[in-house]
Nucleic acid binder design. Structure first.
Length: 288
DNA sequence: AAGAGGCCCTGATAGC
DNA sequence: TGCTATCAGGGCCTCT
């Protein structure tokens, strides 16, 4: 599911719920996530207090009062659910992938607070938890990633330095978290559509004006998606009002065979697999 | 050394 | 109805 905007929404709702609360108990049903859950996880997180919650890229970062940072990556299908502890009643869905009901299967990790618990559910188990010992380790971890689109380092100079002699296509660069952090498959297609650049354009073939457009629309698309509560592409018809609505604003993603929405363009949206990921684009107004 | 592709995993859906 | 194939919002790893 989640690209930067979706993780941001989860962060915001989770923050209201668990900030300054103490973790009472952890139950691990399955530690075989993308990376096996650290065997010290329970010991370290249990009895700590959540001081704050941040987001970097597609990671949730939970700062604990014992100096540790607990990172959550939701992978493709990871979701967090808040459940009333005593009544076992579902309270809030902090995700945009599943229906608003608590799933029965794949509830791998239960984190109990005083009056409620958070359940991590992840059918595909591409998500994972990480524990970083202190701020230094966190900074070190983040330094392996490229800037977020909102970062002032994500500018034309950076593009020129990174892309000017590269043969790899621009769509792949937008998905490459070492180049830019937080963009995923949906928003990459959307950004390139607005910038009128074909996803298969070789990065070396981009000019200064293309850089500008990509930078501008990256910020614009992600900001709007956050404002709309993210995208909910699966089961969104089951929405209880808490799911995102950005999918209504998709210009190209999942619109194969439909008309291009650019003014004065008679193009039809194409779907093409590029590096194992579907790309959507208009082959008339997005020039190669 | 950069870049393409395989692969991890389960579930939903389409097609026969 | 039930089988099989394909695809899904991510990204690490291997091979060339």
């Amino acid at each position: 599911m989640p690209e930067l905007p979706e993780v941001e929404i989860v962060k915001q709702s989770l923050s209201k719920k668990i900030k300054n609360k103490r973790v009472k108990k952890i139950i691990i049903k399955n530690r075989n996530l993308r990376f096996k859950l650290d065997h010290k996880f329970s010991n370290i997180v249990q009895n700590s207090i959540v001081e704050n919650i941040y987001r970097f890229s597609k990671y949730l970062i939970i700062k604990l009062d014992n100096s540790y940072y607990w990172l959550i990556h939701l992978g493709m299908s990871g979701t967090l659910h808040v459940v009333d502890k005593n009544k076992q009643k579902f309270l809030t869905n902090l995700s945009f992938y599943q229906s608003p009901n608590l799933p029965e299967k794949h509830n791998h990790i239960h984190i109990s607070f005083d009056k409620f618990k958070i359940i991590y559910n992840d059918p595909r188990r591409f998500g994972y938890f990480l524990l970083l010992k202190n701020k230094y380790k966190l900074d070190e971890f983040i330094s392996n990633y490229g800037p977020e689109p909102f970062n002032k380092k994500f500018n034309q100079t950076y593009f020129k330095k990174k892309l000017s002699n590269k043969s790899k296509n621009i769509k792949n660069y937008l998905l490459d978290q070492k180049f830019v952090s937080g963009i995923g498959n949906i928003y990459a297609s959307e950004i390139l559509f607005l910038a009128k650049i074909n996803p298969e354009r070789k990065s070396a073939k981009l000019n200064l004006s293309d850089y500008k457009k990509i930078i501008f629309f990256s910020k614009k698309v992600l900001k709007k998606a956050i404002k709309k509560g993210g995208s909910s592409i699966q089961n969104f018809k089951n929405s209880n009002g808490k799911t995102g609505s950005f999918q209504k604003y998709f210009q190209v993603y999942d619109r194969e065979g439909m008309h291009c929405l650019s003014k004065k363009c008679d193009g039809i949206i194409k779907k093409k697999v590029i590096s194992n990921r579907s790309s959507f684009y208009c082959n008339i107004c997005q020039k190669i």
